[in-house]
Design a protein around this nucleic acid. Sequence first.
DNA 1: GTGGCAGAGGTCTTTTTAGACCTCACTATT
DNA 2: AATAGTGAGGTCTAAAAAGACCTCTGCCAC
Lengths: 78, 78
Amino acid sequence: MISKKDKAILQKFGAHLKQLRENRGLSLRELSYACNIDNSKISKIEQGMINVTVLTLVELSNGLEVSAAELLNFRKSL
Amino acid sequence: MISKKDKAILQKFGAHLKQLRENRGLSLRELSYACNIDNSKISKIEQGMINVTVLTLVELSNGLEVSAAELLNFRKSL
DNA sequence: GTGGCAGAGGTCTTTTTAGACCTCACTATT
DNA sequence: AATAGTGAGGTCTAAAAAGACCTCTGCCAC
């Protein structure tokens, strides 16, 4: 029951996450190892297929060595 | 299967959310109305009983009129 | 052409959130 | 004392996340 608008938010978030990861030169598997999240799941998150929870967000931020707030620092609307 | 450490993170997040809400002089029910989230759920979130998702986070930030990043701007560890 | 690594994506089970509604105890006001 | 508002917390169903594992294709080096 994810609306089109929500889908857009998740996709923007995913794109932002991907950019942060690539900025650090990490592959999906490397980040997966760094934060104990399955690489297939990270892949889905980056594509906006998953509505991640706060704890996952915190784990990702640890793996990426950024603040959790930074992970949410993306434009939700245009 | 939420670990003790995770529980602590959720509780810190909840306390932060509560502070943001009270700073704005909003009751649970007022915030509930502002962001279309049931007040009983917000209560549970503030107590760290729920591992909120990104979309809920965004809705809360809209209701509180703060950035989503600001919601995550709390100390995860001491 | 075999092997290794990449991202994407499928499958499956268990656990949890989402969401709506309702109750209770407490407090303040009338 | 009755009423209205508060936070806390219970119940229930349906949808989704978590988590683990596996496959496929493409790329690049050996």
